[in-house]
Design a protein around this nucleic acid. Structure first.
Lengths: 334, 334
DNA sequence: TTGTATGCGTTATCAA
DNA sequence: TTGATAACGCATACAA
């Protein structure tokens, strides 16, 4: 890989002149410029971003940290971020935190070692303990998809979205509710609030189930469904979970939406491609990512590393209604 | 972010001594070492990988280039690569080529600018034209999931896998076959060969359909299915495509596996979580990725940049049989 | 318009 | 065992 120094030797000019020609900001003798360009092209010169990043100038690297790349929602996020970043001349370092605080801290250490210009992270947890380590970062960063008091974040209110799901299910005349997700999840809290607002006695009519293990989840859901005979409204914390629940219900012979109305979260391709289509909360991934990348890069280029007021940018979620919450009592409708 | 130079000043030793302490390879005075370590910890010293990469030493960066991060298969691939790389002390730069040769070339340029130590790529195309640009790379690299004559590759034989699918469908007594994928795809060619081997007159009994547009695909498949009344064997080029086909079939009221047996490719979570489960060709993603990363890093660390003989590492695919190719004629069985 | 000199944060090579 | 010194590839300030 040829360097400016070598190009300089080959063309008989100084290295800074080569730099000036190749960067094209200062004025140079056209003839010299041509000679240098020709030589650079001939030898397929590629600037060394590493060296460029060394002089306190920028690396044009952004880090993206997500808890699970294999989750289609985060895959969409990474794709969208990469797309916008690439257009702006930035490349991305991808980190998978695996929902582990320990790994998250390691990632944070690593991305600082690479002197990335900025970070976009979807933290595993949004409580105090789970976000403390971000406070020590000296580079600009943004939190995506979650709202955190202490940090700049770009998100859809999971709480409001949960309430929206509640309203939708209530409108369908449902009286029994199940949230499949972690206790304390904002979606779940919003769901509960929405139900209460709708006059539901959540103590008796709302159940929360969370099991990592598929078999245990299956038996708990089966037990839940056989504990009453009404139609149930089930809200799963994401589309993958919703797919799993749908599968479980179908296996034990519970028709969806007949006996159970099902709602997912993230509106990934899964929810639309499956039969019956799953009603799901849509987050405007593309727009959010475009915004967060452009906003972050703006800050990077302004070099305003000073702490400013914490800024929250909320995007509106919308519910994409599909067959899984149809009013009709027959499953698998067209 | 504190530097070695500053640590040196603070502890009253020279900067190279700090380097020696922190890297721990050379022997240093234990007392000095302790003082330096304490100081480094106190100031949260983070080595500058950028500077380290400058002196001809390594960046500990690997680039991964895939055509579509949002495809669950590639998301799995990236996750697996990231996992193995992280254990070995490497971070990854992710690039999305979007199935565009032009973008692929841009990625190749970029990753060289970042002086990554190696590249793992899933090229969009595996013909001469689609892989030529890899030839100019001066860093170690590997091709994943495809086999290319001219390059080191780690893959599952799509051709053999296609033949395996053919054998499976023939065993199910099927006589009409549809491949939903691009003309010339190795999977399709293998499928055709497998059918011929099984005595099928592929001219009359095999059809190939490829449409980017969902609606057009839908109407072509509907037309195809109504052109005869036997049971059809449909092989989709990947699981996302298979899901799409399943959806189309269900919408037009064609029972799977009753009237059509369906086979996918990649065995992503989709094929197992959906109802009916989709029979799918499994690629051992984890093992392949572990192998390719470790193998690549081995070459990087040996610094054997000399061209060696082209090496192909083939992994065995296996067919995961599910309800979508059940012999029974009733759809959605348990 | 161009060249010289310097510095970025490391590692490596010397000599002490 | 340690410290000077140079080098990596580039950008920038300054001098010419």
């Amino acid at each position: 890989m040829i360097t400016m120094k070598e190009l300089a030797a080959l063309t008989g000019v100084s290295q800074p002149t080569v730099s000036r020609v190749l960067n094209g900001n200062t004025s140079v003798n056209p003839e010299v410029a041509k000679k240098v360009w020709d030589c650079a092209r001939e030898h397929n010169y590629q600037p060394n971003m590493i060296a460029r990043g060394l002089n306190g100038s920028q690396t044009c690297l952004l880090a993206v940290m997500v808890p699970n790349i294999a989750n289609p929602f985060f895959a969409d996020v990474i794709k969208a971020i990469e797309g916008t970043a690439e257009k702006a001349g930035y490349s991305i370092l991808t980190f998978n935190s695996d929902y582990s605080l320990q790994k998250e801290e390691k990632c944070l250490r690593l991305l600082q070692q690479y002197r990335v210009d900025g970070l976009i992270a979807a933290p595993s947890r949004d409580d105090e303990e789970g976000t403390r380590h971000f406070g020590e970062l000296t580079i600009p960063w943004r939190i995506l998809t979650r709202c955190s008091d202490r940090m700049d974040s770009v998100y859809v209110s999971h709480e409001k979205a949960g309430a929206m799901v509640a309203a939708h299910l209530l409108q369908r005349g449902i009286q029994r509710f199940l949230f499949v997700g972690k206790e304390g999840d904002d979606k779940g809290l919003g769901f509960e609030r929405g139900l209460r607002t709708g006059g539901v006695d959540t103590e008796r009519q709302l159940t929360v189930i969370w099991e990592e293990d598929r078999e245990r989840l299956s038996s708990r859901i089966a037990a839940y469904m056989s504990s009453f005979s009404d139609r149930a409204g089930i809200f799963a914390s994401n589309d993958m979970e919703a797919l799993l629940v749908l599968n479980i219900l179908q296996r034990v012979g519970i028709p969806v939406p007949g006996r159970a109305a099902l709602v997912g979260f993230d509106n990934t391709f899964i929810s639309s491609q499956i039969q019956p289509g799953i009603t799901s909360v849509n987050q405007p991934v593309e727009e959010m990512c475009r915004f967060v990348v452009e906003d972050l890069i703006r800050q990077i280029q302004k070099k305003e590393k000073k702490p400013h007021a914490v800024r929250h940018t909320e995007f509106a979620a919308n519910l994409v209604v599909r067959a899984s919450t149809d009013t009709g009592s027959c499953s698998g409708g067209k």
